[in-house]
């Protein structure tokens, strides 16, 4: 079983956490990633900074700028990932970012570097199924999961194309919008997750706008995983290189809520 599959096979919903790599500095990221693991996160998403993060709200935009301002290079992100893998052999690590930094040296180069760094999956915001040849085949050949996004605008006719060629999990973006803004109405999430799970053979994790343990718990009652990003990135913005403590604290609260979400109603 792959690390990603194991993370979603613990008999409870999974907590997926996101922080931007290199924020506030490349050296500070390791302690923040460790705090996520110690807090109880099941899957770690590491953001690859990009100058033009057009799917992100203000919190993650600023994180990208802080990281690039600190001089973070792609080589730093790969180094952070490889060191994480050495410290945490069992925790799945997913790179999330934009097409240009991922493909600039060629998709095969990127896929091989992912393998070398022990990266389990890749989420590329701006490569929809229609442009899959840009990155998908290289990742699949290398055994790295391509994790696609489904959104409120992904209708039943489109869903099979989104699922085709994706693995690891499906990331359901609960609102038509950018990261870190408003949360979707719970009823719409329930409906969408039920619809997607009827077609999907991979786990479905829900994100965008999830900030509190209460919101996370409500989603975890229906979804296989809950993704939290901007709320954690806000803590990094506030505490900088000393963010590990507050990040661990919020992660622990989120993990407790997500992991026990279904017990409460059982």
């Amino acid at each position: 079983m792959t690390r990603l599959a194991s993370a979603f096979a613990k008999g409870r919903p999974a907590l997926v956490t996101f922080v931007t790599g290199g924020d506030p500095t490349p050296d500070a990221t390791a302690s923040i990633l460790d705090a996520l693991v110690e807090g109880g996160a099941d899957v770690i998403e590491l953001g690859m900074p990009f100058t033009d993060p057009m799917a992100d709200g203000p919190a993650i935009q600023l994180a990208n700028l802080r990281s690039l301002g600190a001089g973070t290079k792609t080589a730093d992100i790969l180094r952070i990932a490889a060191a994480f893998r050495a410290r945490h052999p069992e925790v799945p690590l997913v790179l999330m970012g934009y097409a240009n930094p991922m493909t600039v040296r060629g998709a095969d180069w990127f896929a091989a570097e992912c393998v070398n760094a022990g990266i389990d999956g890749v989420i590329c915001v701006d490569i929809p199924p229609e442009e899959d040849p840009e990155l998908g085949p290289a990742l699949r050949n290398a055994g790295v999961s391509l994790i696609r996004l489904a959104t409120p605008t992904t209708d039943a006719a489109r869903l099979p194309a989104v699922l085709e060629g994706s693995s690891g999990f499906l990331y359901y973006v609960s609102v038509a919008g950018i990261t870190g803004m408003q949360q979707a109405v719970q009823a719409s999430i329930d409906e969408a997750v039920a619809r997607i799970k009827a077609s999907a053979t991979i786990p479905v994790a829900v994100g965008f706008g999830v900030r509190t343990p209460e919101q996370a718990a409500a989603i975890a009652r229906v979804a296989d995983g809950v993704v939290v990003g901007s709320a954690l990135v806000d803590l990094v913005a506030k505490h900088g290189a000393d963010a590990a403590g507050p990040v661990k604290e919020l992660t622990a609260a989120l993990a407790a809520a997500v992991h026990s979400a279904r017990k409460e109603i059982a």
Binding site: I127, E130, E134, T153
Partner: peptide, 12 residues
């Protein structure tokens, strides 16, 4: 060319 956009925009 091509259509390198977020999934939310793709149907539109």
């Amino acid at each position: 060319g091509g259509r390198y956009v977020a999934e939310t925009l793709m149907p539109l």
